[in-house]
Design a protein around this nucleic acid. Structure first.
Length: 880
DNA sequence: CCCTTCACG
DNA sequence: ACGTACGTGAAGGGG
């Protein structure tokens, strides 16, 4: 919508001059009116956003009005020198703003404004007049409004037809009649002596105009007043004429000439600098300014004003690349510094301050229909949640795409992806920021340019990586699994898990006492004090001092690992104590102390980070802290789980885990009759394996046989080797080989599958999962036995582990959708590879059990059923 | 910064 | 003969 602003330059200059103290430039030149004028213009541009603009000035002391009335304005004091000297500077200011100004010999600014506003009305253009002079209210109409300075220079009131009626009870065109009757001492317009505002308004209420008042002088109440009106009839007519703005000048200006396209920041800043308007200079050029700099071949604007940002985002072409810059480290509480934006043609850096000021931008962020391309969108979403900002509409995450295309790559730094995919010269963050202690946050121009190149690269990568996902048949996996999952994980990370700090501290105290006692006992048995945590010192004590037999060595010396110590346990009392010290020490340092450090002070919660681009098989991992390896196998450690509690009183913890998901996946892939049957009949799989491997009836399976069968099953999933199995079961390699041979004789389908998958890997160079996740195995044809063997085991393991990961991820996406659709208050808290942990209000427990079981068991359809076990409790420990 | 150890699936 | 179980992350020691 076009809006014309006509500024009464002379009036505003006077206003500014008298409203502000007489500020001077260091040379002594008075500059206050220029300063006030500048303030008014900046505010006007920011708040009103004129599309067309003109400043009108009075041209000279003499005007056509003097021909009618020589005394016009004659009582007015001469313009003070301090002000008149500022007019040329104000015109320089307007030049710096690129705002046109206009003055015409013999006419006043009012007449120019009157003429142009009439033209604008005829062209149906909305007009606002900016002035300090009430006379101009006569120009107000349906399409013309006036902004009248109220106090100071930047506060203005809007006068519409309605506002004028409310205030004076007059139509705008009656303002001249008012002046005709009451006069105007400042312009030396006489009016009718003895008639002031009150009387004039009363007369106009009754008669409507000067002419009518004069014609009906007889009907005026009050003898004296009648007389005055009659005596000064001509003077009243003249006064009205003088007050009437001339709206029909021949002016050689088309409205199109008044189109305003904004100012050149540098030019205006130069002007402000020259006149020492430091704050104004900073306001437009300092850190809160749109500053254009150049990063290599691209230009980047630093947007510091919400209004500029609003326009930018309103006119952006989708999708917009969005990079959220924040402080390093675990990001749940990281401060956001700013945003990099790119829509393909324009690049912008937006300090977070500006983001917070712009509601338009925030609703853009929230709008699912406004497409955004991100890099590590989970991180961005979690970091912004802290500020109550929700981001929707991410249609692509460069990091996630890179991970799917190359899951074995450990580093998905944007610079690396850009370099490999595009040969795009983007410096690595470590290069730009420095590493570790040397790291420093970039600021200003440097940061803006770095982000501009990032967002530029992101947009280019969006195109390219999307094509590759298509080529490899991974679009569904990407758009329907990983991308939606990122948002779900963001929610889980942001929600966090409540921890009972007191309980954890109590456990810590208990462990501390036990460690103290064990330490003393160990020192006493060793006959000396040493660092039990140092494998080197411990090895020295055990193998040199106590002369225990050396079972295994490491690159650096004696091995003191648990499996070695377990074998030595009967030989010396100290060994058992060391094993226990290790066990308790691990609980103390990693779990008690480690977790305490991660509890957020205010909320008592822990917010892990789920790594979605780390595990080569497609699994998630968990860091800061790792909540996927909380102890369970030994009772002492398991008690750590007591400290994980619901975040709302009365709620429960619910755990749902897949039963034997990897072996079920194996049964599906291998199509082995025996295995398929075992799962279809819902048998205890390890017992069943023992029956087949050892050739005995169910009743004859001993606990040892079941334990060994279980180890064989694990071995199968890992890509079995006799050596590995022998180590695990502490048996000879030959015995292990016999187990494996018997297993494959019992499950020939599994044998065939393992041979096939390795063969496939050799032929294609990669293996895939159920949902087409892909892992390359470059070493599969290596001449190096080690590397080749490793690749072969990976070929056997990855489709199984990866498919299990696909399944639970898909279940998470489907679950989140269903819980939200059905209005559950339940929150998904954690994923631990084959199980999901929730906190749930008591009244939802039963319904959740049903929904979770349904969704998890039916996430995909395999040749065997998927089975889920659900349990609940007041803590994670109790949900067993 | 690497190594060893150990927690989980 | 080779010399390893698959996938992770954190802590502590020591150079």
């Amino acid at each position: 919508m076009d809006k014309l602003y006509l500024i009464d330059g002379s009036s505003i200059a006077y206003r500014a001059f008298y409203a502000l103290p007489l500020l001077t430039h260091s040379s002594g030149t008075p500059i206050n009116a220029v300063y006030g004028f500048s303030l008014m213009l900046l505010k006007l541009l920011e708040e009103e956003k004129p599309t067309h603009l003109l400043v009108a000035f009075d041209a000279s002391a003499k005007t056509f009005r003097h021909a009618d009335y020589e005394e016009y304005k004659s009582t007015r004091m001469k313009t003070p020198d301090e002000l008149s000297g500022q007019f040329p500077i104000i015109k320089d200011l307007l030049d710096a703003f690129s705002i046109p100004y206009y003055e015409v010999e013999n006419y006043e600014a009012d007449d120019i404004i009157g003429t142009l506003s009439r033209k604008a009305e005829e062209a149906s253009l909305k007009t606002r007049i900016v002035t300090g002079d009430k006379d101009l209210l006569q120009l107000v109409s349906e399409r013309v409004e006036a902004l009248l300075t109220r106090k100071g220079i930047t506060e203005m009131d809007v006068y519409t037809v309605d506002a004028i009626r409310d205030k004076y009870g007059l139509k705008p065109e009656q303002i001249v009649d008012l002046k005709g009757l009451m006069g105007d001492s400042s312009d030396n317009i006489p009016g009718i002596p003895g008639v002031g505002e009150k009387t004039a308004l009363k007369l106009l209420q009754q008669f409507g105009s000067v002419e009518n008042v004069l014609d009906n002088a007889d009907s005026i109440s009050g003898k004296k007043l009648q007389e005055r009106v009659r005596d000064h009839a001509d003077q009243a007519r003249l006064s009205k004429k003088l007050a009437t703005i001339f709206r029909d000048m021949s002016i050689d200006i088309a409205l199109a000439d008044l189109k305003y396209d904004g100012y050149d920041r540098e030019r205006l800043a130069k002007f402000f600098k020259k006149w020492e308007f430091k704050t104004l200079q900073e306001r437009i050029m300092g850190d809160d300014v749109t500053e254009r700099t150049k990063a290599k071949d691209i230009l980047v604007d630093t947007i510091a004003h919400a209004s500029v940002l609003n326009e930018w985002i309103d006119s952006a072409s989708a999708p917009v690349a969005l990079y959220v810059e924040m402080e390093p480290g675990p990001y749940v509480n990281a401060d956001v510094i700013g945003f990099g934006l790119s829509d393909g043609t324009r690049h912008a850096y937006v300090p977070f301050k500006t983001v917070k000021e712009s509601r338009t931008f925030q609703s853009w962020l929230q709008d699912d229909a406004r497409a955004k391309v991100g890099y590590d969108i989970k991180k961005a979403m979690v970091a912004l949640k802290k500020y109550g900002i929700q981001v929707n509409g991410f249609v692509f995450d460069v990091m996630l795409a890179s991970y799917l295309l190359n899951p074995t790559e450990s580093d998905h730094a944007l610079s690396e992806i850009a370099k490999q995919q595009l040969q795009y010269p983007l410096p690595h963050d470590d290069e730009v920021y420095g590493k570790g202690a040397k790291r420093k946050q970039l600021e200003g121009q440097e940061l803006a340019e770095h982000l501009a190149r990032k967002t530029e690269a992101m947009r280019l990568l969006h195109q390219r990586l999307d094509e590759q996902l298509e080529t490899y048949g991974m679009k569904d996996l990407y758009y329907r699994l990983e991308l939606p999952l990122a948002k779900i994980l963001a929610g889980m990370e942001a929600d966090g898990v409540k921890v009972d700090r007191g309980r954890l501290q109590a456990l810590g105290k208990e462990f501390e006492e036990r460690l103290q006692k064990l330490t003393e006992e160990i020192y006493s048995l060793a006959g000396t004090e040493f660092n039990i945590n140092s494998p080197k010192q411990l090895g020295h004590i055990l193998f040199d001092k106590l002369n225990l037999p050396v079972m295994k060595k490491t690159k650096t010396g004696y091995s003191t690992s648990a499996d070695v110590l377990e074998k030595l346990e009967p030989q010396h009392e100290i060994v058992g104590k060391i094993l226990l010290f290790r066990q308790i020490g691990k609980l103390q340092s990693t779990y008690v102390e480690g977790l305490l450090k991660m509890i957020q002070q205010e909320t008592g919660k822990i917010h892990t980070i789920f790594q979605q681009t780390v595990a080569a098989t497609g699994r998630l991992s968990s860091t800061d802290p790792n909540l996927q390896n909380i102890p369970i196998r030994l009772e002492e450690g398991r008690r750590i789980r007591e400290v994980f509690v619901p975040s709302e009183s009365g709620w429960k913890i619910l755990a749902a885990d897949y039963s034997q998901i990897e072996l079920r996946v194996l049964a599906h892939f291998a199509q082995d009759e025996t295995l398929l049957e075992a799962f279809r009949e819902n048998m205890d799989i390890h017992t069943r394996t023992a029956m087949d491997v050892f050739g005995v009836d169910k009743d004859r399976v001993t606990p040892l046989m079941r334990r060994q069968a279980k180890a064989v099953n694990f071995g199968i999933v890992y890509g079995i080797s006799d050596y590995g199995l022998s180590q695990n079961l502490n048996i000879s390699r030959k015995e292990a080989a016999t187990f494996i041979e018997r297993y494959f004789r019992s499950f020939p389908g599994v044998k065939r599958y393992m041979d096939d998958i390795v063969k496939q890997a050799r032929e294609h160079g990669y293996v895939t999962t159920l949902l087409h996740r892909r892992r390359y195995l470059p070493d599969i044809n290596s001449k190096n036995f080690n590397r080749r063997s490793f690749a072969e085991r990976t070929a056997m393991n990855t489709p199984i582990q990866g498919t299990a990961a696909d399944i639970i991820k898909l279940a998470m996406v489907k679950l989140a959708e269903r819980l939200s659709r059905e209005g559950f208050k339940t929150r998904m808290l954690l994923q631990v590879h084959d199980e999901l942990i929730f906190e749930v209000p008591p009244n939802e427990v039963e319904a959740l059990k049903a929904v979770v079981t349904d969704v998890m068991e039916n996430a995909v359809e395999l040749s065997v059923p998927l089975k889920v076990d659900v349990s609940t409790g007041d803590t994670w420990y109790d949900a067993k």
